[in-house]
Computed example of a mutant assay.
Amino acid sequence: MAVIAEPVTKPVSRLHFMLDRREVLENILIAPAIIYVLLLVGLPLLLAMYYSVSAYTIYNPTWQFVGLANFTQIIDNPNFLQTLGNTFIFTFGSQLLGLVLGKFGAFLLLRPFPGRKIVRALIILPFAVPVALATIAWQWMFDSLYSVINWTLIAASIVTREDAPNWLGNPYLAMLCVIIINAWRFFPFAIVIFLAGITAIPQDIIDAATVDGAGFWRRNYQIILPMILPIVAIGLIFGIVFTFTDLSIVFLLTMGGPVGATSVLGFAGFQTGIVSGDVSHGAAISLFMLPVLLVVVIITLRFIRRREI
Rank of each mutant, 00 (worst) to 15 (best):
P44G: 10
G213K: 00
T254R: 01
I149R: 03
T245F: 05
W184N: 06
S157Q: 14
F303G: 12
I89F: 13
D204K: 09
T262Q: 07
A156V: 12
T210S: 15
M289I: 12
F288T: 12
V178N: 02
W167T: 00
V178G: 04
Q64T: 12
R21G: 00
Q139D: 11
L287P: 02
L173R: 15
T72I: 10
M18E: 15
L153W: 09
G169P: 03
I201D: 05
G67D: 05
G273Q: 03
A268L: 14
N60M: 07
Q95L: 15
R307D: 03
S144G: 12
I154T: 08
R218E: 15
F244G: 04
K10I: 10
A233V: 11
I237C: 07
Q139G: 13
I298L: 13
M175Y: 04
G269M: 03
A134G: 11
F90R: 03
A156H: 01
L145H: 12
P44N: 01
C177Y: 02
G105Q: 05
L122N: 01
G213T: 03
T199L: 13
P11V: 10
I34W: 06
I201F: 07
Q271E: 15
I58W: 07
R185G: 14
T57K: 02
G213A: 07
I237G: 02
G93A: 03
T9M: 08
V8H: 12
P44Y: 08
K103T: 14
S52D: 00
D143I: 00
I4A: 11
G257M: 07
S144D: 14
N86T: 09
Q82C: 11
G239V: 08
F267R: 00
L15V: 13
L38T: 05
L25C: 08
Y146D: 09
Q95N: 14
F113K: 14
P112K: 11
R219M: 11
V259N: 12
R116C: 00
I198M: 15
A33H: 10
I231R: 01
V178C: 08
R185S: 14
W140V: 10
V24K: 13
L290D: 05
G256H: 03
P171W: 02
I309P: 13
T87P: 02
R116F: 01
V8Y: 11
V295S: 10
Y172T: 15
F113A: 03
T262H: 04
A155Q: 10
V53C: 03
I206P: 01
L153K: 08
V178S: 00
E308H: 13
L133W: 06
S13E: 09
N182Q: 15
V100K: 11
T62S: 15
F65Q: 06
N86C: 09
A128C: 09
E6G: 06
A31I: 03
L38C: 14
N220Y: 10
V8I: 15
L43N: 09
Y59K: 08
I198R: 07
P114N: 10
P78T: 08
L168Q: 10
P126K: 00
I228Q: 01
G260L: 06
L176Y: 06
Y59W: 10
I154A: 08
V297C: 05
L290C: 04
P188I: 02
F186S: 10
V211I: 12
Q139K: 14
I35Q: 01
L287A: 04
R116D: 04
L96F: 13
V295R: 11
A284I: 03
I35W: 07
Y59L: 13
P130Q: 02
I58A: 07
V232T: 05
